[in-house]
Amino acid sequence: MPLNTAPNLPDPDGFYDELLRAHEGLSQAESEALNARLILILCNHIGDGEVLREALRAAAA
């Protein structure tokens, strides 16, 4: 399955808000740690090496 870069979130504004609220009150280092944990959890959920490589390429572009 290729990386899905088409709109896929049912409530984009709502999700964005939740993401920012997760970081509220955190220091820079705490936020970076949270982001790192979040990335690892999501990557494991995807669990497809080719999709993850595509995502890394898309993020780096």
């Binding site: 740690a33 790192a36 990335i39 690892l40």
Partner: peptide
């Protein structure tokens, strides 16, 4: 680097 340490510690915590 700082970011590799952040990922390393994220793995350990998770």
């Amino acid at each position: 680097s700082d970011v590799s340490k952040a990922f390393r510690n994220a793995v350990l915590k998770l």
